[in-house]
């Protein structure tokens, strides 16, 4: 009856049989809801984002929120040590998580965390990258495509100039950073498959 909870925004990776799905969901949402709200507040601060229609803002946030959260929390996945830190502050080794059934999505998160971490971004560079991640998310349901494209182009230009100003001799850094965008799309698709299987028992 115990339940495995793969997302590190949960207190820990296993919940006892005595706890109902509703109880598990409510404690998870105490972390998840503020984390999503933080992404929305972050998006409001992106120059030009609030000029999009309300519906387009919602659509972009719906398709981009998990990708932004994956960047925001990627340091919970320590690729070097092969551990994941859950909300209780404890780290769990890969061996334990494997036994619990965690597989390709976990491996992909480790790989992503390693690649992004190796770029050594400053906080403001990471924030600008997260803005690019959000506006580069899937555009199904977007009504004003041109406005989103212009927003994306402007943010990518800003990211390129910030990075080349900071590290003029590292011309490979910016392309490496943009290569993380398809990684995030893949992670998001894998994560969506898991979400489809997620149910809160009535």
């Amino acid at each position: 009856g115990a339940k495995v909870l793969a997302c590190p925004l949960n207190a820990c990776p296993v919940s006892g049989a005595e706890r109902t799905s509703q109880e598990i969901w409510e404690s998870f949402s105490q972390c998840f809801t503020p984390a999503v709200k933080e992404v929305v507040e972050f998006a409001k601060g992106i120059p030009g984002f609030q000029e999009l229609s309300q519906q387009d803002q919602v659509m972009l946030l719906k398709s981009g929120t998990f990708q932004v959260l994956m960047v925001r929390f990627c340091t919970l996945f320590n690729a070097k040590e092969r551990t994941v830190t859950f909300l209780n502050g404890q780290t769990y080794p890969l061996s334990t998580l494997r036994v619990l059934g965690m597989g390709s999505l976990l491996d992909a998160m480790f790989e992503f965390s390693e690649k992004l971490g190796s770029l050594g971004l400053e906080p403001d560079e990471m924030a600008l990258f997260m803005a690019v991640v959000l506006v580069s998310a899937d555009r199904s349901g977007i009504s004003d495509m041109q406005a989103v494209e212009q927003l994306q182009e402007g943010l990518i230009r800003a990211l390129r100039s910030l990075i080349s100003r900071r590290r003029p001799d590292d011309s490979a850094l910016f392309p490496k950073l943009l290569l993380r965008l398809p990684d995030l799309r893949t992670l998001n698709n894998m994560h969506s498959d898991k979400l489809l299987a997620f149910r809160i028992d009535p």
Partner: peptide, 27 residues
């Protein structure tokens, strides 16, 4: 194509946060 994020009520959280009134408990 059903919406995976709907399992978590993501759109509801986003809409409320955009309108700035997430203070009251989600229903």
């Amino acid at each position: 194509y059903n919406d995976p994020a709907s399992n978590l009520g993501l759109e509801d959280i986003i809409r409320k946060a955009l309108m700035g009134n997430l203070e009251e408990r989600p229903d």
